[in-house]
Amino acid sequence: MNTRRSPPMTLWLWICFAFLYFPILSLIIYSFNVSKLVTVWAGFSTQSYATLWKNRQILEAALLSVQIGLATATLAVVFGTLLALCLTRLGRFRGRSLLGGLASAPLVMPEVITGLSLLLLFVSLEKTFGWPKRGALTIVIAHTTFAMAYVAVIVQSRLSAMSVALEEAAQDLGAHPPAVFFQITLPLIAPALVAGWLLAFTLSLDDLVIASFVSGPGASTLPMVIYSKVRLGLSPEVNALASLLILLVALGVTVVGLLLGQKSRDHRVVPGVEVKKVDGRLDDDRRPPIG
């Protein structure tokens, strides 16, 4: 019943995946076009890659974006993990629901609002304290703020899938809270941290709107440069750049997917044991520590 495949369904899946992947494929194909007209095929060439390589503006922006991405991803993983710990492991404290709201709000906030409000804050702060100067730093702060929410979501789901009994057992065996975190919790949520880091890095690398708001003169990220080029029309260089980025992402995703796939197989959260249900309810009077 549940795995019966019907031809129309299969056809629909094919159409949808074609819709998802055709544009990406077209970017790659036309990056090898001889013609400057981009969409009119005139023969194979790697000319656009050579031009891209000589374009200092794009290369510098790419370098800046990568730097911002590295800083953002690292900060976001630290803050996001702390946030996830707050929300899943620390029980009740004052302002918990406010913090929970604040943690998920950046996920749904339209970018223009986040960008505008952060810029206005930076302007006020700069006027009052003389800090922070707008540029790479403010972009990192802004990106960290929304990326940490994504990291928190990923880490939270991992934490809640992980039985609290493991941490309790470690405590029971004499491990102090920091030891519990570093010897038990951290190794077990490591895959989530890797995934969160990569997601934060990608989000940062990808963001145009927020960066445009909070950036200052002289700090142009890769999306900002691409955007200014794209507004003027199609450009073979952008196609070449896109192909390279896609290649990079495909490689990255494959490698990480293989790594995580292997990891999760021998790091199952509760190893092959199912807590038997007693009288139809799990356990007897055990409640979640938060509650």
Partner: peptide, 13 residues
């Protein structure tokens, strides 16, 4: 996971 901007750009073409 690939650039949003570039995917939108692809549709121009």
């Amino acid at each position: 996971w690939t650039s949003f901007l570039l995917r939108v750009y692809a549709w121009i073409g």
